[in-house]
Design a protein around this nucleic acid. Structure first.
Ligand SMILES: [Mn+2]
Ligand SMILES: [Mn+2]
Ligand SMILES: [Zn+2]
Ligand SMILES: [Zn+2]
Lengths: 134, 134
DNA sequence: TTGTTAATTTGTAATGATTACAAAATAGAA
DNA sequence: TTCTATTTTGTAATCATTACAAATTAACAA
């Protein structure tokens, strides 16, 4: 996919083989994978891949604006190639992380004059598949 | 403070000495402390206190509804005795976590039928003290 | 009071994700 | 090719959290 190459280049990321594979996987998967998910998915087809590379690459992607990181669960970081404004719902049943759109933006009272760089809305509960099984 | 005792009892938490001290500290501090913050604050006046007790107690407080946990930073859990609906802003300069009120609630599109148990809005950036120093 | 049991607390070891670091491999320019 | 900068890799270290079992304390009946 040369489109991915251009996207990375446009954000000052040299598109190495590893970076391209990681970006391609992240972009095609909509499950908000952890670093370990990415590593385990790519390791078979990239035998020399190192988990450190996944972490390094994700840091690079984030600071260059082609990915975001999700703090929805305390003990794991999840990554997302969708950098548009949207929220996340983590199901306590199946563990899936769902995207949702913010139909009406919230308004805040108490951060006047602050510089807001990042804005995260995280929900937790049970999705409509898991809820009936409770 | 007998008011704290009653508050814990009302939520089915037996008010032991350790639990009371932890709750009192959490309630009086508005800095959203980590487990380690709580431990270090109370250890001098409670020499036998164990960090495990802090973690155990926070889990109990959360499941019994007298505290909430904050996933604003990937590598640390922060606790809050304010269980009312409000958002948090973490300053990348000073590290402080500020509360803010949600003047107008957001509306979501894509979680219809889901059971939402928890709802977190986390902002990051620079507070009005740190912003001018950039 | 004493004895018996359940609840709570404690200390230590284990876990697991992330980071630090330095060597090895690779790419790019001259 | 040769030189140099960049990227990747493997391993060890870090650090927050959890698991676990022993020790302490509380509850309560006899
Ligand atoms: Mn997403
Ligand atoms: Mn708060
Ligand atoms: Zn589910
Ligand atoms: Zn600040």
């Amino acid at each position: 996919m040369t489109a991915f190459k251009e996207h990375l280049s446009k954000h000052d990321i040299k598109p190495s083989v590893q970076r391209l594979k990681i970006y391609e996987y992240l972009h095609n998967s909509h499950n908000h994978p952890t670093a370990d998910d990415i590593y385990r998915a790519l390791a078979p087809s990239t035998p020399t891949l190192s988990k450190t590379t996944v972490y390094n690459t994700m840091k690079l992607f984030i600071s260059n604006g082609v990915a975001t990181v999700l703090n929805i669960e305390g003990n794991e970081l999840r990554y997302d190639a969708d950098t548009s404004t949207h929220g996340h719902f983590k199901c306590k049943g199946c563990g899936n992380v769902y995207d949702f759109r913010i139909a009406r933006a919230p308004e805040f009272n108490g951060v006047e004059g602050f510089r807001i760089d990042k804005y995260e809305i995280n929900l937790k509960g049970y999705c409509n598949v898991c809820k009936p099984k409770l």
